[in-house]
Design a protein around this nucleic acid. Structure first.
Length: 149
DNA sequence: GCCGGAAAAT
DNA sequence: ATTTTCCGGC
């Protein structure tokens, strides 16, 4: 079972509320893993990029990434030490794990993160990010770009 | 750098 | 509930 389509792309979906301003009704704060996927998706700058394995990524410029994250969240004193602590909280949630021995390298657990294809990955290239158990799944449907891995 | 406890912040 | 902040330990 592959998350690729024929062209080797996946489609990344973010909750639409992730893009509303914080003061907007119904909006919530964007979460760190949304932000990371967004940068990876866009091949942003070079502060972060996909690594060799499926879901693996390398933080090329830790302090710049932290700065970007801090700007997004309105935390001007954000740094890699604190950002990486947030990443470590993802271990127990099984959103991420560390690629041991590789500096600044982490890996998304897409098996956990992407639970559902809607309606079919192969035909529509749509994945839905969801961190909750399937039994209490709520799906956030919105449109987004695709990314070659 | 990386880990994870503890407490605070939102 | 998800970080942010701080930090002792490895």
């Amino acid at each position: 079972h592959s998350f690729y389509n024929d062209a080797g792309f996946i489609k990344v979906l973010f909750p639409d509320w992730a893009y509303k301003p914080a003061w907007s009704p119904g909006s919530r704060q964007v979460q760190l893993w949304h932000f990371l996927l967004e940068l990876l998706e866009r091949g942003e700058g070079g502060a972060i990029s996909w690594g060799g394995e499926w879901g693996e990524f390398v933080i090329r410029d830790p302090e710049r990434l932290a700065k970007m994250w801090g700007e997004r969240k309105g935390k001007p004193h954000m740094n890699y030490d604190k950002l990486s602590r947030a990443l470590r909280y993802y271990y127990n949630k099984r959103i991420l794990h560390k690629t041991k021995g590789k500096r600044f390298t982490y890996k998304f657990n897409f098996n956990k993160l992407i639970l559902v294809n809607y309606p079919s990955l192969h035909t529509c290239q749509v994945c839905i990010y969801n961190t909750r158990p399937k039994s209490e799944t709520t799906f956030h449907l919105c449109n987004f770009q695709s990314k070659r891995l």
